[in-house]
């Protein structure tokens, strides 16, 4: 068995009544990776994460955290720290008491780093949790998780309540965690955030994993948008559409042509060499475009 993988699932499935929420998920996240877990609402991201944590019992398949079965929480949870999407705390405890409690029962906490994080996230630890906003509750869970030295951080949409300043602090913390060699499993809707911090992403759709790839690879596989400006009209370029990997050839004007390109650009460049080209602009797709592509939608 591959015990070096931070997280591994095999045919992981979960059925709620007649709904198949997660369907035969096979996923391996190697140690040290910052992995983005994407998918629209209801795709099964949180269900997957709650199975990884042993909070939900899989209907089929199994999951391992550093080689320990996910349902053996006493062992598996020594390797991880978790930030839920919707953080609920005991309202009468203060933020400090919540942090103390989580440190007391958790997998080991760097108290000096925790105090530093409290300052960086501008958390007021002597307030009662009942008076905290959604974002502040999320900060408590983030501080508690980042302050652990757990080798795996499982973050379920951890920044949905954070303002841009805190969001920046969050990205720094991810980078610091990655530098320390911690593995990060980040479920998120904020594609810019995933784009900025993750090295590899998995895309979930209706409970099935439809793609797992490095971000660079993902971009390569997807279509780039090519814009060609010409010095004079070149009608023969219409034949570009016949080349492999080329689609959507459009003449915006006599002097401007756009096309979508998948795969190596060699043939297109060869064809363009015959024309009088002033400028070529090749734009890689944003993660958002890739994401929407997977769900069959076109950005407006």
């Amino acid at each position: 068995m591959d015990t070096t993988a931070a997280l591994r699932t095999e045919h992981l499935s979960k059925r709620f009544g007649t709904t198949l929420a997660v369907d035969g998920l096979d996923l391996t996240v190697p140690a040290g990776e910052v992995f983005g877990f994407l998918g629209p609402n209801g795709a099964g991201k949180s269900t997957t994460i709650r199975m990884l944590l042993g909070l939900l019992r899989p209907t089929g398949g199994a999951a391992w955290i550093f080689g320990d079965r996910a349902d053996d929480v006493q062992r598996a949870h020594r390797h991880l720290a978790y930030v839920p999407a919707d953080v609920a705390l005991w309202p009468t405890l203060t933020g400090q008491e919540c942090l103390d409690l989580l440190a007391g029962v958790g997998p080991g906490t760097d108290l000096a780093y925790r105090d530093e994080l409290v300052g960086r996230f501008a958390l007021e630890p002597d307030r009662r949790a009942g008076t905290y906003s959604t974002g502040n509750r999320q900060k408590v869970a983030l501080v508690a998780a980042f302050a652990t030295r757990a080798p795996l951080l499982v973050l379920d949409e951890p920044t949905s309540g954070l303002d841009p300043l805190m969001e920046r602090e969050f990205r720094r913390c991810i980078a610091e965690a990655a530098d320390r060699g911690q593995t990060v499993f980040l479920s998120s809707h904020q594609l810019a955030e995933v784009d900025a911090v993750c090295t590899r992403v998995g895309i979930l759709r209706r409970g099935r994993l439809v793609e797992v790839a490095g971000l660079a690879e993902l971009r390569r596989l997807r279509r780039s948008e090519v814009v060609v400006d010409l010095a004079r009209p070149a009608p023969e370029l219409r034949r570009l559409a016949e080349l492999p990997g080329v689609a959507d050839v459009r003449e915006v004007s006599d002097l401007r042509l756009t096309l979508a390109l998948t795969g190596p650009p060699g043939p297109v460049l060869g064809a363009l060499a015959e024309a009088d080209v002033v400028r070529i602009d090749v734009r890689e797709p944003s993660l958002e475009e890739i994401f929407l592509d997977y769900y069959g939608e076109v950005p407006a």
């Binding site: 944590l53 042993g54 909070l55 929480v73 006493q74 062992r75 949870h77 020594r78 991880l80 720290a81 978790y82 839920p84 919707d86 953080v87 609920a88 705390l89 005991w90 409690l101 989580l102 029962v105 958790g106 997998p107 869970a141 508690a144 499982v154």
Partner: peptide
């Protein structure tokens, strides 16, 4: 506590239910 989600963080620690 369970219904309100307050046990999620506790049970994500090495604490058996």
């Amino acid at each position: 506590d369970e219904r309100a989600g307050r046990l999620s963080l506790l049970y994500a620690s090495p604490v058996g239910r």
